[in-house]
Design a protein around this nucleic acid. Structure first.
Lengths: 343, 343
DNA sequence: GCGTCATATGAAAAGCTTTGCAGGTAACTG
DNA sequence: CAGTTACCTGCAAAGCTTTTCATATGACGC
């Protein structure tokens, strides 16, 4: 019954021609006339033939497949980005292999190996929290596989990158806080060795410089992007002598933790405390008060990352660009949580 | 430089043995002694050799790859399920190819073809809203590729399935509403040809039967799983002569829409109106009032779907089970939105 | 009738791995 | 020493497709 796979040899036998001819027909090779192509197509459909990409790719030495590595596929930002990537790949007839690093360096390496084994044409990666050395990424390039970093990029390796205007976004968010009469803002950041978090911190600092303000040393802290961390950091900071009257975070979840602290301490948001999130999670405009945040346009970011491969790398097989960076403009969204003044 | 791919022939030449021997060594074949295996491994590492899965799979006729098709990867439920699938695949050294159907039948078919071309060992699918005929799924089986349906299954095709106890969950949720003194519950459902939505409706009806209650004909409506639909349906239903005093929905987003209507009309939730969501989205316990919902354990569901392939299908290559269904127990979570009585 | 050209078709190799079988060597037994 | 065993190692084929190059056929011009 469904015993053996149907191959071009089966088609060839049925039609009384050679296998190589069938192959040409299926690929619409110019040396095969239209009538023949049609009848081969028909036969292929009739016998329920499906080409074997593995054999083709083996022959061709490439694979019409893109690999993606992200820390967690079930985090909104990444699943959105992947949706964008998938869209572009689908349009270009490439399929997608997806791996999670679970924020672990060793799993990231394992994923990279898998993708190399699979002979992917390109790897799109957003590195894990643990990744501090780019040696494994260099390994990708050694295997003549294209590499595009998105969102979380390492500055230790040149190449193709897409990320948000993180510095600018943090700068704008901080400025908005000042413009809304908050006087003393604390920053809850993320792991500093990942460029995007460093950049956000820099934007935060630039805004202070511009307004001629100094930042108390303890008003810049770092941690993971969870509500628990937000809660902990905010409890600490709100217990010091001159506490901040606003927070800028690098994740809406951290912001959520701060809201909880405020509720517990009876601090009114936004009247007594301003809170600025990051990532514009689905809940940001649903919770009370609605949360000011930064919309990172994650889907677009994914699309652009994929497009870099199809539009830039593929077209540019000659002199290799070594540094190509795209910035996706994010959008600062002001909601209730930072409206001290009613305007 | 990075010219040609390193193959077992390169290793063979370097070590002065044959390629087939290298292959055996790398696979720890018993006829190769330990010392040799070690030195081949070392050499492989030294030359940065990465095996070519495509060639191996071509030879082996299988592919250590699982294909997944979901409507939208950026919907919480699916990205969670995929996270679960990925976990199990990773453990079993399989990689994952992910496709989105975008709720479109034609894109679903295209995705299926892609996966067949890729020679995947198994396809895990949650069908699109548009899919009404299982012919394309049968095609998968014809290509001796294993098939597991999860969450959204069609009743028109027997086979391996995993889903929630949808009927039971809806029944329990409805019962909870009655127990909390709501007298007249309306149901906002989803597309009826997808079994899970039908089952939820049946659970809703069973609860009424059990309590000896009749359901006004217009209290059962259907639509997509969006806030807009929830808003529209609820506005309509709350304007009739004897409006319902509670809603059971099939999505938290629909519930969100109802909350909006209530706010607009000045109806107090939960005092005057109970609202029950479904899916336990991240925002359910964050919004005000917090939303009663059904936790579908989506990640577990994904894990189980993948495990069916590894634990059941692979182990059971003899007499084919034709109907194997697993039910993941979901959890009904009561929050503020349905607490008419304080207890 | 012969050289030329266009068109249609096929043979064979290559891409890389796995595996059954056979061949070879060394050690060991009686 | 002949025969057996155990252990290593390699040959060759298979898995399916693509592509180069060669051949065959017929038509055409002169």
């Amino acid at each position: 019954m469904s015993e053996k796979r149907v191959t071009i040899y089966d088609l060839a036998k049925e039609l009384g021609v050679s296998a190589s001819y069938i192959s040409k027909a299926l690929n619409s090779h110019p040396s095969v006339n239209a009538k023949m192509i049609e009848s081969v197509r028909k036969k292929a459909f009739e016998l329920n033939y499906q080409s074997n990409s593995q054999a083709a790719n083996l022959r061709l030495g490439s694979s019409k497949t893109i690999g993606v590595i992200v820390p967690h596929i079930d985090q909104r930002f990444f699943s959105d980005a992947i949706a964008g990537i998938e869209e572009i790949c689908f349009k270009n007839n490439h399929s997608l292999i997806i791996c999670q690093s679970h924020e672990s360096y060793s799993q990231e390496c394992k994923a990279i190996n898998t993708l190399i084994h699979q002979n992917v044409a390109c790897i799109l990666i957003s590195i894990s929290e643990e990744t501090r050395s780019p040696t494994y990424l260099e390994n990708i390039q050694k295997h003549h596989i294209a590499l595009v970093q998105f969102d979380r990029c390492t500055e230790q390796l040149d190449g193709f990158k897409v990320s948000n205007d993180n510095e600018e976004a943090a700068y704008n968010a901080t400025k908005k806080l000042f413009e809304n009469d908050y006087k003393s803002v604390a920053f809850i950041g993320g792991p500093d060795h990942i460029a995007i978090f460093k950049h956000r911190k820099e934007g935060f600092i630039r805004a202070h410089k511009e307004f001629g303000l100094t930042i108390p040393y303890n008003f810049i802290v770092e941690g993971s992007l969870t509500a628990e961390v937000g809660f902990k950091m905010a409890s600490d900071l709100l217990s010091v002598k001159d506490p901040p009257d606003a927070f800028l975070t690098v994740s809406d979840n951290q912001a959520l933790g701060i809201l909880k602290v405020a509720a517990l301490k009876g601090i009114k948001v936004p009247e007594q405390l301003g809170i600025f999130g990051f990532a514009n999670e689905a809940f940001a405009n649903i919770i009370t008060p609605t949360l000011s945040s930064v919309n990172q346009k994650s889907k677009e970011l994914g699309q652009h990352a994929a497009k870099i491969y199809f539009d830039v790398i593929l077209r540019n097989k000659g002199p290799q660009l070594t540094n190509y960076e795209e910035i996706i403009k994010s959008e600062v969204i002001i909601r209730e949580s930072t409206k001290k003044r009613k305007d």
